Computed example of a mutant assay.
Amino acid sequence: MTLLEVDGISVSFDGFQAINGLSFAIGEPELRAVIGPNGAGKTTFMDIVTGKTRPDSGRVLWGETNRNILGQSESAIARLGIGRKFQKPTVFEDQTVRENLAMALKDRRGPFSVLFGLPADEGRLLDFAEEVGLAAQLDRLAGELSHGQKQWLEIGMLLAQEPRLLLVDEPAAGMTPAEREHTTDLLKRLARRHAVVVVEHDMDFVRRLDCRVTVLHEGRVLAEGSLDHVTQNQDVIDVYLGR
């Protein structure tokens, strides 16, 4: 089933055409990698899907009803089930892993529960911590974690919001080889029950994801298919691989 469909969106900033008639669709569950050179429109694409940027034209259709979600606020779109993880981890470093996850729980939004530390569902917290590989780190301050562990914590916080679609921006950046391997396995597991879009520059990391790849260039889809398929496309070779 198609979960998200971006239909013919275009947007320009001060005369620069950042997105140019872009169409894109992803099912649930599915893992998709989005690649492309700097300026291809990858970040703007995510900004539009999450409500940060309003396009000049086109539609963003969501869910079983194909509801056009353009014009809704970022918070409303997040509540629909669209979650985004930025490249730089944004965790609360002075709080423990457990406290970070507790603050992110979908049904624990009331200010009193956060301010006064009312009990959260410990079982759910443990599930999310185990999913991302931090079950043994629950009582550590987030600021003490390695870069890779902070990335996993942020993914755990995203999962605690129970999204159907996860947009993950350059998760492999700055990670050790072991952390990259763990992240690959994590994203592939998550894609068994979620739609997961991974924006990434590292081609070796994309190859390990072993998924369908969408190549963007000048705000439109240049090619789509397996990594081997798109890297043999002459247009992709010319504009992205530089050969």
Rank of each mutant, 00 (worst) to 15 (best):
W152T: 00
Q95F: 12
G81V: 11
N233I: 04
H229F: 14
T50K: 05
L227S: 13
G117A: 10
I77V: 14
F24L: 15
R84G: 14
R84W: 11
F16W: 07
S12N: 07
L166H: 01
I237H: 08
E99N: 10
L61G: 08
L222G: 11
G148I: 07
A78K: 02
V239Y: 05
D47I: 02
L241C: 12
V199M: 09
Q232K: 11
G133M: 08
A76K: 12
G156I: 03
F112D: 04
V34A: 05
E74V: 15
R59D: 06
A173S: 08
L166Q: 02
V230C: 01
V221C: 05
P89H: 10
K150L: 06
K188D: 06
L153Y: 13
C211V: 01
Q234R: 15
D121E: 15
T231G: 04
G63W: 13
V215K: 11
S146P: 07
K42H: 09
E200S: 04
G51H: 11
R79W: 14
T43I: 08
G174M: 00
V34W: 07
T96C: 02
I155L: 12
L158S: 05
K42I: 03
R32S: 02
W152N: 01
A135W: 05
R54Q: 11
G133L: 10
F16D: 01
D14K: 10
A135E: 15
W62R: 01
F45P: 00
H229Q: 15
R124Y: 14
